[in-house]
Simulated scan of single mutants.
Amino acid sequence: MKLTIKKIAELTGVSTATVSKVLNNTGRYSEETKKRILDLVEKYDYKPNAVAKSLRTSRSKTIGVIVPDITNEFFAQIVLAIDNYCSPNGYSVFICNSGENEEKDIQFFKELELKGVDGLIYLSASEELFAMKTKLPIVCIDRTPHLHNFAAITSDNFKGGQIAAEELVKKNCKNILVITDYRDVPATTERVRGFQSVLEKIGMPYGEDNLLTAVVGIEPSKEAVNSLIQSGKFNYDGIFAINDSMAFGAMIALKENGFKVPEDVKIIGCDNISLSKYNSITSIHQDKDQLGQRAAELLINRIERGIYTKEIIKLPVKLIERDSTRNCE
């Protein structure tokens, strides 16, 4: 038998409204009525039509998450935290991995909107994506676009850069190399700005020769540092990399060329993922669980309460000291 709410009502002798209350666990009804309805539901394995329900309520209880690289542990941990918050609150999560491809960002945005998601979370999304017109509530992570209907949650990246600079200066580094993403990404730009602000304040020389840009990743960073060493232009005693994978790539290049870490060169990364932990790289810690949880919480509040005001939340960061900067005084 194809069971519907109407059919359940007929078979149990109650109204469709009462059936709906029992199935959604809302309102008043007797235990006897509840048992009759649930016994019937179990007998015929009734499953409510989610599409029909979404049409009635104007909500699908789903959200979309667009992530640039799901293989990156930093993003993966955030996505897991989003799902861990959403599931107990009755929301399903559609995860779309764009692979750092802006065209895919746009494609996924359109598809998610067509699927009727209730809201979107962007993790480091492209600027083109922010230009898309939508009435959906949006929460960004590590992005603060100029949109009227968005909220953003980000780590204090500027402070992270400052902490890294202060640590290397404290460890007597005199000439520091900053390894950063070749793209103009807000989170990394803020880290570099924070780092530079400390050097400017103490009068330490810092120019174009102190900045090395590369594609984000272990191998690109390794190749970039190796090329610098082979050219005879590597005369640095400290390195700040804007993420842990680039810090690890730099460490490999240094060791392969006979440099000792931390005796010759001290290294600090950023994000504090397991790569830095198991290779004993000092790193700026970002709270990935809080980034994901707070983003999901913000979005669900906006969905259910109709909140559309601009809101930005900044989470604190901290230094996790390991062997790559120890014993350098």
Rank of each mutant, 00 (worst) to 15 (best):
I176N: 04
Y46V: 04
N226L: 11
A224E: 01
G217D: 09
G116D: 10
M251L: 12
V14M: 12
C96E: 09
N149C: 02
A253S: 13
V198W: 03
R326Q: 15
Q286W: 06
N72T: 10
G116W: 13
C86S: 14
L254D: 04
Q77I: 01
I239W: 03
K310A: 02
E167N: 03
T12I: 06
F158R: 15
E102K: 14
N24R: 09
K104C: 07
D184I: 06
T62A: 14
K255E: 15
A250R: 02
P68M: 03
Y29A: 05
G232I: 13
I313G: 00
V67G: 00
R36G: 01
Y236S: 06
F108H: 09
K201Y: 10
I252W: 01
V41H: 05
R28Q: 10
K43L: 15
S221I: 05
K170I: 01
K314I: 14
Q196K: 15
L275H: 06
T16M: 10
K170R: 15
S126L: 02
I176Q: 05
K135N: 15
A131E: 13
T180Q: 06
K21C: 08
L3R: 05
E111Q: 08
D39N: 14
T33S: 11
T26M: 08
I82K: 00
G116T: 13
M1C: 03
N89P: 04
A131S: 12
Y44L: 13
S197G: 11
Q290F: 02
T12Y: 04
C140H: 01
L211D: 01
L254G: 08
S227I: 02
T33V: 15
V67M: 01
C140F: 00
K53S: 13
Y46S: 04
F240M: 10
N301Q: 11
F195T: 03
V225T: 07
T12K: 04
N327I: 08
V93G: 09
K255L: 12
E42F: 01
Y206D: 03
S58W: 02
D156W: 02
D184K: 14
L228Y: 11
L275Q: 04
P48Q: 11
L298D: 00
E167W: 00
L177S: 07
T57Y: 12
N279E: 12
F195C: 04
S87Y: 09
P316I: 11
T189M: 09
A152P: 03
